[in-house]
Nucleic acid binder design. Structure first.
Length: 557
DNA sequence: GCCGTTTTCGGCCCGACTGTTTTCAGTCG
C-alpha cells in the first residue's frame, strides 16, 4: 500500500480543487478542498496518525465530506471525485494554470472556446493569434502568455530541495532499519550539496552483501519499484515521482564512493581522476593532502584550493542562529497562535522571535490595519511574559508601487522592528523598481528587507533590480537583507547574498514561518548563507540579543 | 464542502494591478 505523505495528500486535494474550478464545479466546494490542502500541508504529524485517532474531522476546514475523501485516498491511493472528473476532462488542463497570467477563467475559456487541453495546445493557440480573437482577451494578453510560456520552457523541471531532502531522509531511515547488519546508507548528490533544486535523490549504500540490496530496496514503502539495475547501481522511483539512484559499494571504499557521488562536476574536475580508496571521506581528502570539505561547499568555486592550503573558512551552522525576525501567526495568514509560535521558537533553542504579520494592503492574507496591529501588541507582550523569550513586535509592511510603505512613520516608529516587503508590481522596469526599493531602504524605520528579489524557485523570476545600487544603499544604512529560508523562495540566493556581503551588507536568515513546522526550513537558509561564504558576524540573527537591540536602537534615530 | 456569540441555512479573504475596456473582469498574492 502506498504510504502517502501529508504533502502528497495536499497536492492531490489541490489538483482536485483546481480541476473542479476549471470544469465549473461549485467554487466554494473547490475552495474548501484548497483550504483542506493547505491545512494538511501544515500539519505537525502524519495524516494517518490523525485518522487512527479519529481526529481528522476535528481539523479546521475538514468536515465529514473531505475527511472521507482523505481516508479513501490514504487507503486506496485514489481520490474518487478527482478520478471522476478526470474521466470527463483531460488532467493536462491543470498544466495551463502553471502559466503566470493564466487563471481558472482563462483556462476555462481556452478549453471551452478553443479546445485547448494542454500546454502545447495553448502555445499553438497563442502563436496563431487565436487568443487575441477571443472577446475580452487582446494582443497584450496573448503576448504575455507567449512570454510566460517561454519562461516556463526555461524551467528545469527539477524538484525543490524542500521536497527532496525530507523524502531522502525518510528513505534513509527506512533503509537503515532493513539493511543487513554492518551495512549503512548515506545521502549524496545534489541533495547533500543542498542545491536549491535537484533532478533526483542519490544514495550510497555500504555493505558486504551486495546481492541482498535489490530485494531490500524493492520492499521500501516509499518507493514504487526498481526501474533499472546494473553494475552495482539501482534506479528506483518514489511515489512522488522523484527518481532515486542508489550506488552499492564495499565498506572499504565507502568514503571514495561518497565523494564521487556528492561532488558537483566542477568540484570533481579539480580532484585527481583516480581517487584513493578509503572507507571515510576524511581519509580520502587527507590522502590528497586536503582538509575535509563540507558537502554544501563542493561546488568547484575555490574550495579545493583552500582545502589544500588549509584555509577553508569557518562558516556558520544552524546552531549559530539564535532566533528569527520574520514569522506569521493567525493574526494574518499564519496557522498558529502567537503563543504557539513563540513556544515553538523556544523549544528550538531560540532566544528571540519577531512576530511580523502582513500589513493591510495584503488583504488576501488578512493583513493588519493600525487598530489590529495595536491590539496584537498586547498579545505579543503577553507571550513574551509567558515564555521569557524576547518577542519583537514587528510587521511585514507592504511596499506600494511608488515606494511608499503601508503605514505612516509614527506607526512604524512604535514597532520594535520593521520588515518591508514587495509582493506586487515586480515587473516594473529596472530603474523604477530600483528607485522604489532605495526609497524603502532610506526610511530609517525599516530594519529588514524581506525576500528582496521576490523570486519563487522554478516558478517566478525575481524583479530586475540594480543590485549594485541596492547593496550599496543597504550597506550604508545598515539595513539588513533577508535570506528567506523557505524552500520556495531562497531569496536572496547564494550568488546575490555573496555580492551583498562583498558590498558590506548585513544579512538575516528567516524561515518566514506561517506555522510551527515552518521553522524547519532554517537549514535551507543556512545552506544559502554558507554557499555565500557568510561569517556569523554578518548575520544579524546570529548576534547576542544585546547587540541586536543596540542595532535596532541606532536605526530608529 | 465547511461553518456557527449571525448556529443547521446562507454565507464564504480582499485590494492592487493589468489589460481590456468606456465601466469592468481576471489574476495575483
Amino acid at each position: 500500500m502506498p504510504l502517502l505523505t501529508n504533502r502528497e495528500i495536499a497536492e492531490t486535494l489541490e489538483r482536485y480543487a483546481n480541476l473542479a474550478s476549471i470544469t465549473g464545479e461549485n467554487a466554494f466546494r473547490s475552495r474548501a478542498f484548497q483550504r483542506a490542502a493547505d491545512v494538511v500541508r501544515d500539519l505537525h504529524e502524519p495524516v494517518i496518525a490523525l485518522m487512527d485517532r479519529g481526529d481528522l474531522r476535528r481539523l479546521p476546514g475538514i468536515g465529514s465530506g473531505i475527511a472521507d475523501a482523505i481516508e479513501t485516498l490514504v487507503r486506496t491511493g485514489a481520490l474518487p471525485p478527482l478520478d471522476a472528473l478526470q474521466r470527463t476532462v483531460p488532467a493536462t488542463l491543470l498544466d495551463l494554470l502553471q502559466v503566470p497570467g493564466v487563471g481558472v477563467k482563462t483556462a476555462t475559456r481556452v478549453y471551452r472556446e478553443l479546445g485547448v487541453v494542454d500546454l502545447p495546445g495553448l502555445l499553438a493557440a497563442a502563436e496563431s493569434g487565436r487568443i487575441r480573437a477571443l472577446p475580452g482577451l487582446g494582443p497584450k494578453t496573448e503576448a504575455n502568455i507567449l512570454a510566460a510560456m517561454e519562461a516556463l520552457r526555461r524551467r528545469t523541471g527539477r524538484f525543490l530541495l524542500g521536497t527532496a531532502l525530507p523524502l531522502a531522509r525518510r528513505i534513509v531511515a527506512d533503509l537503515q532499519g532493513t539493511l543487513p547488519a554492518g551495512s549503512s546508507v548515506a545521502i549524496s548528490g545534489s541533495v547533500r550539496r543542498m542545491e536549491e533544486t535537484v533532478a533526483d535523490i542519490d544514495l550510497v549504500v555500504s555493505t558486504r552483501v551486495h546481492e541482498a540490496i535489490p530485494a531490500t530496496v524493492a520492499h521500501l514503502p516509499l518507493l514504487s519499484g526498481i526501474v533499472r539495475h546494473e553494475n552495482g547501481s539501482l534506479r528506483v522511483t518514489t511515489h512522488a515521482g522523484i527518481p532515486v539512484d542508489i550506488v552499492v559499494v564495499d565498506p572499504s571504499v565507502f568514503g571514495t564512493a561518497l565523494i564521487r557521488a556528492t561532488g558537483s562536476a566542477d568540484h570533481l574536475a579539480l580532484l585527481p581522476e583516480v581517487l584513493p580508496s578509503a572507507p571515510t571521506e576524511e581519509e580520502v581528502y587527507s590522502r590528497l593532502d586536503m582538509e575535509w570539505i563540507a558537502p554544501d561547499l563542493r561546488l568547484g568555486l575555490g574550495e579545493v584550493m583552500q582545502a589544500k592550503a588549509g584555509t577553508l573558512p569557518t562558516l556558520l551552522s544552524v546552531g549559530d542562529v539564535r532566533g528569527e525576525f520574520h514569522a506569521h501567526t493567525l493574526w494574518s495568514d499564519g496557522t498558529a497562535t502567537i503563543l504557539d509560535m513563540v513556544r515553538s521558537a523556544a523549544e528550538r533553542g531560540y532566544a528571540f522571535l519577531g512576530v511580523s504579520d502582513h500589513s493591510r494592503a495584503l488583504g488576501v492574507a488578512n493583513g493588519l490595519d493600525a487598530a489590529r496591529l495595536a491590539a496584537q501588541r498586547q498579545e505579543i507582550e503577553k507571550a513574551q511574559r509567558a515564555t521569557g523569550l524576547r518577542v519583537f513586535a514587528s510587521c511585514e509592511v507592504e511596499v506600494h508601487r511608488d515606494g511608499l510603505l503601508d503605514f505612516d512613520d509614527h506607526i512604524l516608529e512604535a514597532l520594535d522592528l520593521v520588515i518591508a516587503s514587495t509582493h506586487s508590481g515586480l515587473r516594473q522596469p529596472r530603474d523604477v523598481l530600483t528607485e522604489r526599493l532605495l526609497r524603502v531602504i532610506a526610511n530609517p524605520h525599516v530594519d529588514i528587507i524581506a525576500h528582496p528579489s521576490g523570486r519563487l524557485v522554478e516558478r517566478r523570476e525575481g524583479g530586475d533590480f540594480d543590485w549594485n545600487r541596492v547593496f550599496a544603499a543597504a550597506a550604508a544604512t545598515r539595513t539588513a537583507l533577508e535570506i528567506n529560508a523557505s524552500p520556495e523562495r531562497l531569496d536572496l540566493n547564494h550568488d546575490l547574498a555573496r555580492r551583498a556581503l562583498e558590498a558590506g551588507c548585513l544579512l538575516t536568515i528567516n524561515c518566514d514561518a506561517h506555522s510551527t513546522v515552518g521553522f524547519d526550513a532554517l537549514e535551507y537558509g543556512v545552506a544559502v548563507a554558507r554557499k555565500a561564504g557568510a561569517d556569523p558576524d554578518r548575520i544579524v540573527n546570529c548576534w547576542p540579543i544585546e547587540r541586536i537591540e543596540a542595532w535596532l536602537q541606532t536605526r530608529q534615530t
